[in-house]
Design a protein around this nucleic acid. Structure first.
Lengths: 344, 344
DNA sequence: GACAACCCTGCAAACGTTTGAAATTTTTTA
DNA sequence: TAAAAAATTTCAAACGTTTGCAGGGTTGTC
């Protein structure tokens, strides 16, 4: 009832050897027509399922790959996974998903576990703790075993590995440039957590764009959030209370942009006439809220696809030399209502 | 360089038997102190990683479970996965994620594959095609092997299996009741695709709630969408053009609610004064758009947690009798601005 | 009728690990 | 110093499958 049927079971039943059964089920030519048919029929009847575990042991191929991400419950991350999946599942690979919750220790544990499970490659978007601490030792085993390792979203130059990232700096730069082009003079920034790669890059894009366009630096226009909607409320409130109010806010992501829009409306100000708002991520609803939100789109699915492509290159490389390809994808600015014409 | 170090390799190096190495690494008491230390040090030095595949074969335990979902790139689905993960990863389980894109054939293939990989349990949110066709044969093997099988979101009574679902009917009922309580008289419904379980249940909740409150049935107030934002545009346009306009719209999900709100605003009508809008899903932004959206929250993460809990019950049951627990979680109505006071 | 050619099946080893029982070595005891 | 006891190590089998090679049987050819 409970134990799966094995080839040996079938062999015993038919008083033949396991080899014959194996060959019959795999349509090996050197097997008698009748024998094959009988065995195949019986196997089907009893619901025989070839044991992949034993095969994996024999062939040293598991057809499974590990994906380590800080979180899964989030549009961008799951788009990446979907992209990887779209390429790799049709080729027979299984995905082992590991969620680190931004914790270094968990990440380390998952790497060990994946290695132990003999996955054929690892995709990793390193956790915040890992990134902050610069602890990359746990990837050394992966490297030593010359197992395909592909960094997603955050790059590490320590050893040869692939990486696919999105140019957050450029995305921010373009967004701010757009705000400037629409005539905004006092552009504020809802910054993300300091030390966090994506947040820092966007901040840098904001700063350098203003600089290159000859704006004076004004620290009062830069406030901090933690990416969440609520964390934008107080900072934006503060911005609007400034003696000389900003006329545009570039937000580190859409969540905070939505928070900002709420505060602005609650104060009776108009978007975009009084204040323009731009976000980052182009989440699915940004086109449908009112006003629709200008936002920088990150091609998450494409990132996953490219990462999978690089993995396959490693896999198929005849030479064992580590292919270390670094790909940087451009984000795309989606211009919508929230950065429309200024009021006078 | 590439080949992983095995216990045999270490044994050869130390001129001892594999058994000794295995015991030393596992801190077996019957191993000499020095021997153990030496072996452990060496193993660490060469980066030995126990091969879980061989262990799985030996113990017939893979510590991995399969999760089959129609899509992953979506708040609700990924919340479920996150919930399952939160319970099972700490216990050492790996998650094999399979995305069916609502296709029966893929789902069937994944079931075979998971069985072949000897996962210890399968969580499945069946694809639309499976549901429509009533094709559940591919789960028979799972059942015959008395492998824990847990249906998520869509229940199947064909054979003993666990299930955790959310009471969509009740959610819709409560939402519509709320609209009635706020004084609305002509309540329209943006219906989802016919034949789709969740959509149908919500429709039923809508219908029966109106009936129980003595409303006349008005087919012109029921229009169809495919869950997507865009698909709400034309139908809502049509609703607003009716000789006797609805004063409330109950939408099958938040996406369509957002689409509806856009059309309503574009027509110069006010929400909620002229028309109230309620959605379903309580997506993260619903509290922050303007007006904030009343919506029925589905506890996805909790669903995942409960499903995992049921799985563990199967696992730990001393008797092999199939525990078949069916859990129905209540959704929660989140009342917000979009269903506030009517205008006169 | 002998020998080759062919068809089909079985043997045995391999993948990496664990584990009960047996064997060996070392230590203790009388 | 010999026997008993304890400590440590090895043997062998097992998990399920595949596969090169050898073996056995049948048919065909001269």
């Amino acid at each position: 009832m409970s134990k799966p049927v094995t080839i040996k079971d079938i062999a015993r039943k038919f008083k033949c050897s396991p080899s014959t059964v194996s060959r019959a089920l795999n349509n090996h030519p050197a097997i008698n027509e009748d024998t094959r048919r009988n065995l195949q029929e019986y196997a089907k009847k009893v619901g025989y399922q070839r044991n992949q575990v034993s095969l994996s042991l024999l062939n040293k191929k598991t057809a499974s790959i590990g994906v380590i991400v800080p979180t899964i419950n989030n549009y961008y991350e799951s788009a990446i996974i979907e992209g990887i999946d779209a390429v790799l599942q049709p080729l027979g690979y299984s995905l082992h998903i590991c969620v680190t919750n931004e914790q270094y220790l968990l990440e380390q544990g998952y790497v060990e576990k994946l290695l132990s499970n003999r996955v054929e490659g690892i995709f990793v978007s390193v956790s915040q703790e890992t990134y902050d601490g610069g602890h990359y030792e746990h990837f050394e085993n992966v490297y030593n075993r010359s197992l395909p390792l592909i960094f997603i979203d955050r790059e590490y130059e320590g050893f040869a590995a692939g990486s696919v990232t999105i140019d957050d700096y450029l995305g921010a730069f373009v967004a701010v440039e757009h705000l400037i082009a629409t005539g905004r003079k006092r552009i504020a920034h809802l910054r993300g957590p300091q030390g966090m790669s994506v947040a820092d890059q966007r901040y840098r894009g904001y700063i350098e764009c203003l600089q290159q366009h000859g704006f004076d630096r004004d620290e009062t226009l830069i406030v901090h959030t933690d990416f969440k909607v609520e964390s934008a409320i107080a900072p934006v409130d503060q911005l609007l209370g400034l003696p000389s109010r900003p006329d545009a806010i570039f937000c580190v992501n859409d969540q905070t942009a939505i928070g900002a829009m709420k505060v602005i409306r609650d104060k009776g100000l108009r978007i975009p006439e009084d204040i323009a708002v731009a976000g980052f991520d182009d989440s699915p609803i940004s086109g449908y809220i009112s006003p629709s939100l200008t936002s920088v789109a990150r091609p998450g699915r494409q990132l996953g696809i490219e990462a999978a492509r690089i993995f396959l290159q490693y896999q198929n490389a005849t030479e064992k030399e580590a292919i270390s390809e670094h790909l940087i994808l451009p984000p795309q600015l989606m211009i919508r209502g929230s950065t429309g014409k200024r009021g006078k």
